[in-house]
Structure formats: C-alpha cells, structure tokens
C-alpha cells in the first residue's frame, strides 16, 4: 500500500513536469504541439551524449540539454508555427512530421536500439518499507521545484501575467503594450526547456529510445484532454490522477495494462465531459 502511494507520488511528479511544457503552448499559443515529445527525445539524447559519452558533469549536461531544448522550441516557433499562423491543422501535421523526422535522425546517429541512461542521482533509499530510487526522487523534487517556480512566474511577474493575457485575449494583450509574438516566442522557448529537462528525467526513469517521444506525448495529451486546461494547479492534479491510475493498475491488476487505463480515461472524458474536468484553456 505504502509502496503504491510513494511510487504514485513520484511518478505523478514526473508526469506533471512532462505535461507542463505542452500545456503552456496549448493555452498561450492555442497550438497542439504534437512534436512536444521530441523535446524529451532531444533532451535525453543530448544529455546522454554530453554527460555519458563525453563525461561532462551531470548538472552541466542537464543545462546543455535544456539549452538545446530551448533553442529547438524557439526555432520551431520562428520557422514553422509563425509562418503557418492560424492554420491549426497545418501546424499539427507539420509538428507531427517534425517529430517523426527527428526520430529518424536519432536512429541515424545513435542506432535503433535503446540505451540505458545512468541514474542522474544513483542510489536507493527505503521509505516506509518502499524502496525508492534517488533518481526518481530527484526527478520528483525537480518537478515540484520547477512547477512552483513556474506558478510564481505566471502569477506574479509581468511576463507571466502577459502570458496569461495572451492566452485569454490577444487583442486585449496587444493594446496593453504586450507583443503577443514575443510572448509566444518566450513560451515556445520555455516549453522546449521544460520538455528537454523532463526528457532527461524520463529517460533515466525508463530508457533512451528513438521512439521515446510517443509515450510522454500521450501523457501530455491526456493531461490536456482530461484537464481541459491551462491551469498549473489543474495540470498537477490531473498528472496525479494519471500517475496513480498507472501505478495502481500495474501493482494490482497487470503490468501489461500500464497506460491502457489512461487511454480509457481520455476516451471517457471526451465522451462525458468534452470540455475536460476543469474546462478552461486559458493559462492560470
């Protein structure tokens, strides 16, 4: 029982981090960025190359992965999303294509097989009879720290309020002196950064694989659909619903069904409450 609670909390923290960057773009830019999982892919492989292959200290490896994620986010906005402005279907299709191309690139460079990413923080600790890896614990603590930081930025700073403003009313933001284009740019960079960091932790929790962008994308989409939200707190809540559902189904039902209940939940919410449990897309 304790094992389930602890594992559930840890996994959910990671899921919240994974979903957050996706939610940001969805609520501020109103774009379903289907290439979001690619940030995790890039983050994981960049970190692997820098820290594991070249032996650069891990915090610096993480920083470099985050920077590359940020750069990819900025480039994607500038050269793909902005030129296709307003055409959501085109944006969704092209972002999906981009993810597939990136996957092919990773296969080309690193091969098709999966790679083990060594734990960022090695070691195991016993908590109330449950064994917890320091690595997942670190991921969870990092998630919470990032989410709290993000919450403060969004609620308490000028740029954060401007992000909320753009997500709620573009014209209103512009006549307040906010340049929606710059805010979008900032959000894409932030999203790429968050995705890449999440990717490093996710890869160290599972493993590095060229197709590792798919599962996190589904988690992120699930959070957006189930939550229907741009709310940071809502994202955290839904990530916990999904995280616990997974852990419970693995522990009590069958490990093979991992993720299946998440899919069923997505479909159930779409049928019963299409606007999502929280029903608001604006960033809050």
């Amino acid at each position: 029982m304790m094992q389930i609670v602890i594992q559930g909390l840890l996994l959910s923290g990671l899921y919240a981090l994974i979903a957050m960057g996706f939610t940001l773009i969805f609520s501020v830019g109103r774009v379903l960025n289907l290439a979001y999982g690619a940030y995790l892919l890039i983050g994981g492989y960049v970190y692997f190359t820098v820290s594991q292959t070249f032996g650069v200290p891990k915090p610096i490896g993480l920083l470099i992965a985050a920077t590359v994620g940020c750069a990819v986010g900025l480039l994607k906005y500038r050269f793909l999303v902005k030129p296709l402005k307003g055409d959501h279907v085109a944006v969704e299709i092209s972002t999906l294509i981009l993810a597939v191309v990136l996957q092919a690139g990773v296969v080309f460079l690193y091969g098709d097989s999966s790679k083990i990413l060594l734990p960022i923080v090695p070691g195991v600790i016993q908590v109330a009879g449950a064994s917890v890896t320091y690595n997942l614990l670190a991921a969870t603590i990092a998630s919470w720290a990032i989410l709290i930081g993000l919450y403060i930025i969004v609620r308490k700073t000028h740029i954060g309020r401007a992000m909320q403003a753009v997500s709620m009313d573009n014209k209103g933001a512009a006549i307040s002196g906010v340049d929606p284009d710059k805010i979008n740019m900032f959000t894409w960079g932030l999203s790429g950064t968050l995705g890449a960091i999440a990717g490093v932790f996710f890869a160290s929790y599972t493993q590095l694989h060229p197709a590792m962008w798919v599962a996190p994308l589904i988690i992120a989409v699930a959070v957006v659909i189930v939550g229907g939200i741009g709310s940071i707190i809502g994202t955290l809540i839904v990530a916990h619903i999904i995280g616990f559902m997974e852990i419970i189904s693995v522990a009590l039902i069958a490990p093979e069904l991992r993720g299946v209940f998440t899919m069923i939940l997505i479909i159930a919410v779409l049928l019963i409450r299409p606007q999502g449990l929280f029903g608001r897309e604006e960033l809050q």
Partner: peptide, 8 residues
C-alpha cells in the same frame, strides 16, 4: 468589446 482578460 473591452477585450479584458476574463479569468484574471
């Protein structure tokens, strides 16, 4: 139409 930010 004001263009306020409704949930702020």
């Amino acid at each position: 139409r004001f263009n306020l930010f409704p949930y702020m």
